[in-house]
């Protein structure tokens, strides 16, 4: 099944190039240039992974990550940043980011992380389904 990715970055040239390159690798790519747009998009469509820039106008990547996780705890987010500091990395992981990559990143690394994100999400969904079945069985006294 095609990987569904949302890329969020205020650098339009970067956004367009990465989007085109991922599309040629058979990915279903959507783009947003700001957090507000991205938050609306995750409400409307399911994504296997979100590649999110850390430094953006109005609302930065960490704040966006926090809101996205509140909206959808299973969403897998890969942060991209010009400079990855240890502090930012820890903060991002605490907020539930799957990974933090430094720009410029190799496309193969980004694809690898997207595939990993998709696998993580499948595991999470399967675990939730298992729990749901267990809850139903317990409720029925089986």
């Amino acid at each position: 099944m095609t990987d569904k990715v949302l890329i969020v970055d205020d650098e339009v040239d970067f956004l367009n190039l990465m989007s085109e390159r991922l599309k040629t690798r058979d990915m279903d790519v959507s783009t947003a240039t700001n957090a507000k747009e991205a938050l609306k998009m995750i409400d409307e469509k399911f994504y296997d992974a979100v590649v999110l820039d850390l430094q953006m106008p109005e609302m930065d990547g960490l704040e966006t990550l926090k809101i996205m996780k509140e909206k959808n705890p299973d969403i897998q987010i890969i942060l991209l940043t010009g400079h990855a500091t240890v502090e930012k990395g820890i903060e991002a992981m605490k907020l539930g980011a799957m990974d933090l990559l430094e720009k410029p990143a190799e496309l193969s690394t980004i694809i690898d992380r997207i595939k990993h994100a998709k696998a993580e999400k499948i595991i999470l969904v399967e675990k939730k389904n298992e729990q749901r079945i267990r809850d139903i069985l317990t409720h029925k006294g089986w």
């Binding site: 650098e11 040239d13 970067f14 190039l17 990465m18 390159r21 010009g82 400079h83 720009k103 410029p104």
Partner: peptide, 24 residues
């Protein structure tokens, strides 16, 4: 300096993607 180096990295990321696109 931190802000400038961040800006340069953003620019390098676009050049990096452009080179990658040329490879494609």
């Amino acid at each position: 300096s931190a802000s400038i180096s961040h800006e340069i990295k953003n620019s390098l990321a676009v050049i990096n993607e452009s080179a990658g696109y040329l490879e494609d």
